[in-house]
Write a protein that binds this DNA or RNA. Structure first.
Length: 433
RNA sequence: UCCUCGGUAGCUCAAUUGGCAGAGCGCUCGGCUGUUAACCGAACGGUUGGAGGUUCGAGUCCUCCCCGGGGAGCCA
């Protein structure tokens, strides 16, 4: 008999065979002369079974094991409906790789969010965290395949920048050889330049906002998937965005069905939510809709959390709010030719209260527009000269958007807080671990 | 920055009107041949976030500070 080393997710394919697994002891239950070891390896959890009369010495050793002991086990895979995963390993032997020097801090019962975040480096081994992080991987991969399949070129924006994208948002400052530099808050301006070189571009990268936000939807360091397209108008921009969102959800549903089941996500609802097209609602109509449903809001106001929640619930799927007021938005967006008080921009609001998934717009493409809009925002053109060059040399209509990856993952997973959707969340008051 | 709730055993939480500091889980020990957050029994475990104050007496009341959760604003 040949003995193979495999991963736990492949164990159901090896029923009847003798295999080796390398992992960690997730939990242990014993009942006198029979012992159950729950073994995890990152791909899943499987139960190992051992009875005392069969192997007294091995049984005694197993009985002494503590949680998160790393071990290599050998056994025979068999189906058993009493096992949590439907199959289990009849243990033949095991080797301890490392024995923990203290009890593992994370119980499988209950902890406060603060305690869990303090122990994020250990918490991430347990329960829902493994499936969430595997879904995160699937989301990143789906974004990359979508853009690849649609002819986009993967590129990068710098993290260290000398220019602010949004005049208003707070920036993290770093010392750059005696000069102030900032951690990038968006790759957009750089992607506009790159799109003029390569046509259609995207990147997935970290961005930084020094906002003192304290909500379930905000991190100070988060990942955005940003795209920028030359020769693309507002309408085409929205069309691509909805296709991307639906593509990601469908890919994850297909690839990570087991993980979604572990998270008890209502997958049917999720799939229904991404049936195309997503509704397009004019900003003015959205304001009216909110007013008619008892919300205190007027034209020119930005949406607050309750408004976003209402809109998501009302439509039951992601909804574009388009033609937003100029006053709400940054200098680089193109004015609506039909109404200069509006810009050709849209926010994509997620269902189920997950907030804004995407912000996008057609960009102002003439030098005159940009100059006057910089002036209106009280921004000096000087640091933007390189950006203004894009309108001096073969400027074209172009559009782009940024997708908040963590919010996307939170929505797909159905988890309430985005701190669980990234391995190590950076928040106000949290820089460790 | 603002609003709000909280800080008691390693963890999650109790503690009546201001009157002896408690439980469950975990760890340790004992029992149990199908456990599913196993179960049963025992033992271990405390500077009640910090400083000051009121009082015969403070986990409990007062003042200030520190830390955390939730929310708002801002944004993705």
């Amino acid at each position: 008999m040949t003995m193979r080393t495999i991963t736990i997710d492949k164990a159901p394919l090896s029923v009847g065979e003798e295999i080796t697994l390398r992992g960690w002891l997730y939990s242990k239950r014993s009942s006198g002369k029979i012992i159950f070891l729950q073994l995890r390896d990152g791909t899943g959890v499987i139960q190992g079974v051992l009875t005392e009369p069969d192997a007294p010495k091995l049984f005694a050793a197993a009985d002494r094991l503590t949680r998160e002991t790393s071990l290599i086990v050998t056994g025979t895979v068999r189906e058993d409906r009493r096992a949590p995963s439907g199959c289990e390993l009849q243990l033949i032997d095991f080797t301890v790789v490392h024995e923990p020097t203290a009890p593992f801090p994370i119980d499988l019962t209950e902890h406060t969010p603060g305690f869990l975040m303090d122990h994020r480096h250990l918490w991430m081994r347990t329960g829902r965290q493994v499936p969430i992080l595997r879904i995160r991987d699937a989301v990143f991969r789906a974004v990359r395949s979508f853009f690849y399949e649609h002819g986009f070129v993967a590129t990068e924006a710098p993290i260290l920048t000398g220019t602010s994208v949004e005049g208003t948002t707070t920036l993290f400052t770093v010392d750059y050889f005696g000069e102030d530099a900032y951690l990038g808050q968006s790759g957009q301006l750089y992607l506009e330049a790159t799109a003029m070189a390569l046509g259609k571009v995207y990147w997935i990268g970290p961005v930084f906002r020094a906002e003192k936000s304290k909500t379930r939807k905000h991190l100070t360091e988060f990942w955005m998937a940003e795209a920028e397209m030359a020769y693309c108008d507002h309408t085409e921009n929205l069309h691509l965005q909805e296709k991307l969102v639906a593509y990601i959800v469908e890919a994850v549903v297909q690839e990570r069905r087991e993980e979604l089941a572990l998270l008890k996500r209502d997958v049917d609802r999720l799939v229904e939510e991404v049936s195309l097209p997503f509704p397009r609602v004019d900003y003015a109509a959205a304001i009216e809709l909110l007013q008619n449903n008892g919300h205190e809001i007027s034209f020119g106001d930005d949406f607050g959390a309750p408004h976003e929640a209402f809109l998501g619930d009302h439509f039951g799927k992601p909804v574009f709010i388009e033609r937003l007021p100029t006053s709400m938005k940054p200098f680089y967006m193109k004015r609506d030719p039909a109404d200069p008080a509006r810009v050709l921009a849209a926010d994509l609001i997620a269902p189920e209260g997950y907030g804004e998934l995407i912000g996008g717009s057609q960009r102002a493409d003439s030098l005159e527009e940009l100059h006057s809009q910089l002036a209106e925002n009280h921004l000096s053109p000087e640091p933007y000269e390189w950006y203004l060059d894009l309108r001096r040399y073969g400027s074209v209509p172009h559009s782009g958007f940024g997708l908040g990856v963590a919010r996307m993952i939170a929505w797909i997973c159905g988890v309430p807080h985005i701190r669980e959707t990234i391995p190590f969340a950076r928040q106000i008051n949290r820089l460790y671990p």
